[in-house]
Nucleic acid binder design. Structure first.
Lengths: 216, 216
DNA sequence: GACACCATGATTGGATCCAATCGTCAAACT
DNA sequence: AGTTTGACGATTGGATCCAATCATGGTGTC
């Protein structure tokens, strides 16, 4: 058991998970006392955790007025999809020349799992596994970390509102096209396909939101 | 006087500035007691500040072993230049169609100041002012914040090691070319020029470092 | 002499307690 | 009646104190 992790890290991890999963709603107040008793600690590690999450843009901290979960707007999510295009296309272009046969097999395996998956939660898991494995060969730790952080924030909105508006089939077809381009060593084409893939998801999200609610 | 800012924010701001300016060297230990007495507070706000900076990737925190300034490697800086290309080209493409005559005048003014600037510190200030003003019209707060954070981290290395290896003239010529493309409404050309502009800076940094030191 | 082991100081992590600020509500004043 | 003011509870920010862990140096044993 490597439970050497200090309380503040455990708290920030738990809070982060709850915020991303929507267990704690956007805009909800995060009282230090409440959290402290929930985690069985004093308020000190709670405050450190809140500081960390504030730097991650997941909570907002008003001086002497407490912390609350950062409200996630549709605009921000759409922005994050644009950022995804920029970062992930760059990573993919760098990754394609570095891909080995082992990478291709790994990606195939993930897509096969995707085919078998039935519940939306599994789709999204396979989806992120595919994207992550797709960029990994680029060997750029900072870029990969930034991509991960950005996806984490975008994913927050998706999990809340909808479970894949587009269905399961279409994205998978696009995944296979992207993988084929990677096998062919055509980085530019792979990046172009990826851009369309993400842009399409962005658009379907925008329309779905416009239909369900006026704005926000 | 709006000195309502809590100590932890003042400390994190001061430390951030010192780290970015190179006053505190990469890898240096950051003892909580030391910082507390330096800022005239207890260790509590110091710890919060360190947590925040840790989330910003400026310090590294080892459990029960203290914090130290994150070592900045050449590899990471080169990566951040790649990330700059991806993010800033995307922002510029979005900004060009939204630029007004007022934006062009503002950009011209900044370039005129650049021409007059004599000290390297002024160059870099004008340089960042130009880039910031160039992307601002895109009206994407999240993207702009990400660009700012990334530049902040990349800039850290530059300030430490060299004061503009490329000199002052060449970048300025490129700035004017970019601005001309923006005026012409040619977003694609402006983005291509910007990519070359940043990529050139990246390359000159890489060679300068290779010449001055073996690796690291 | 080299290595393992333990004791001590240094340093971080956390808990408890106090001070400062914000929100709310009631009372007083115009 | 409406507005302002003040007092109180709730909550956050910070200081001091204690516990847990790491680093260092000495000592003993082989």
């Amino acid at each position: 058991m490597t439970e050497n992790q200090p309380a503040s890290l455990a708290i920030s991890a738990a809070l982060r998970a709850d915020i991303l999963a929507g267990v704690i709603e956007p805009g909800a107040r995060l009282r230090q006392d409440e959290l402290a008793s929930r985690f069985g600690t004093s308020r000190i590690p709670v405050r450190e955790a809140l500081r960390q999450l504030e730097a991650e843009a997941l909570v907002i901290n008003d001086v002497h007025r407490g912390a609350r979960v950062a409200p996630l707007t549709l605009d921000e999510t759409l922005e994050r999809m644009e950022i995804r295009v920029a970062l992930e296309c760059a990573a993919l272009k760098l990754a394609v020349p570095a891909m080995s046969e082992l990478d291709f097999e790994m990606l195939e395996t993930i897509l096969a799992e995707y085919d078998l998956a039935e519940e939306p939660a599994q789709w999204t898991a396979c989806n992120w596994a595919f994207h992550t494995a797709l960029y990994a060969p680029c060997n750029r730790p900072t870029l990969l970390a930034l991509i991960q952080a950005n996806i984490t924030n975008a994913d927050r909105f998706l999990r809340l509102r909808l479970s894949q508006t587009t269905g399961k089939e279409r994205p998978q077809i696009e995944h296979r096209e992207i993988l084929a381009a990677c096998r062919a060593g055509d980085a530019a084409r792979a990046a172009a396909l990826l851009e369309g893939h993400i842009a399409r998801a962005r658009k379907s999200l925008a329309t779905a939101m416009r239909l369900s609610r006026p704005a926000r």
